[in-house]
């Protein structure tokens, strides 16, 4: 029972981190039809910048805000200077974003050195609660809470605001959105910024969760995020959270019971979804 609970909690926490990365990716793909292979780089930059600010200021909260701000800024720069010239061309998008991914990873090594950095949770999130035989690690609960909070916040934005409506409409038919008098490019920029901010938030939360951060972490998590985007349905925000939880849980359980197959199972799941329901388990765009 205790084991099952801990594996579930671990899976949910990992799922939420993947969700933070995948949600932006799916919205960017759904709305802008952009395959952004550099998204993992923003995750890594969120981790490095956030943990650096955290260790410099001593405040984890400031570190989190710093990481989100870094994500926003990098998102704006990436959209404006890297993505905009290659809208509509998937081959160029893959090449240029893969290139950017490498540049972002190498820049981390240039600024913070090639060695991995350690990251610990703040005092108030260290340790655990004990309920009978069950031990609940505080930081994992915190990650799940933040993930759910972000999910609820973005859902509120998408469902209850004009910009959210426009984003949802744009995912379905961006040409029509423009024909209704809306500047879709501004919406693209907004979505890219939010998506990048979420990825950076995922990165800074990941630091104390794993204890160390390294320049290659972005690529590792990006693979999981792409699996989630495919399983959840490309462009489907709600699908991305469900699929992220599924991938997080399967990763957690498989890593314990059959560790050799932990990534393979997710790959297999993605392959099955692509064969059986290519639009994703939770429907298509929207």
């Amino acid at each position: 029972m205790e084991l099952l609970f801990n594996l579930t909690l671990n899976g949910l926490a990992t799922g939420m981190l993947i969700f933070l990365l995948a949600a932006g990716l799916t919205l960017i793909f759904g709305l802008m039809d952009v395959l952004n292979f550099a998204h993992g780089g923003l995750f890594a930059w969120g981790a490095y910048s956030g943990i650096w600010i955290y260790t410099t200021t001593g405040s984890f909260l400031i570190g989190i805000f710093g990481a989100i701000l870094t994500g926003f800024l990098l998102g704006i720069i990436t959209e404006k200077w890297i993505i905009k010239p290659v809208y509509g061309n998937h081959v160029q998008q893959i090449l240029i974003t893969l290139g950017l991914m490498l540049v972002l990873s190498e820049m981390l090594k240039v600024i913070w050195g090639p060695n991995q950095l350690t990251a610990n949770p703040p005092e108030y999130l260290k340790g655990s609660w004990e309920i009978g035989d069950i031990i609940i690690i505080k930081y994992r609960v915190f990650i799940i809470f933040v993930g759910l909070l972000v999910f609820a916040g973005v859902q509120f934005l998408l469902k209850n605001t004009k910009i959210g409506l426009v984003v949802r409409a744009g995912v379905m038919n961006k040409e029509m959105v423009q024909a209704l008098g809306i500047n879709i490019k501004k919406v693209f920029m907004f979505v890219f910024m939010i998506g990048s901010g979420m990825a950076a938030l995922g990165g800074v939360l990941f630091g104390p969760y794993s204890g160390v951060i390294h320049a290659g972490m972005g690529m590792e998590f990006a693979i999981l995020a792409f699996i989630v985007v495919v399983i959840g349905g490309m462009g489907n925000f709600t699908g991305s959270v469900m699929a992220a939880i599924l991938v997080g849980l399967s990763g957690s359980f498989m890593a314990y019971y059959v560790p050799e197959l932990s990534l393979a199972v997710n790959m297999l799941l993605m392959a099955i979804v692509l064969i059986v329901k290519p639009q994703g388990l939770f429907g298509g765009k929207g």
Binding site: K162, L165, V166, R168, A169, M172, N173, E175, M176, V177, A179, L180, I182, K285, G286
Partner: peptide, 19 residues
């Protein structure tokens, strides 16, 4: 447009609000 360009996942109300 010829294909009507309806936002299928949005309600009638939301379609009007976007417009």
């Amino acid at each position: 447009p010829e294909d009507q360009g309806i936002f299928a996942g949005l309600t009638v109300e939301e379609n009007m609000k976007v417009a």
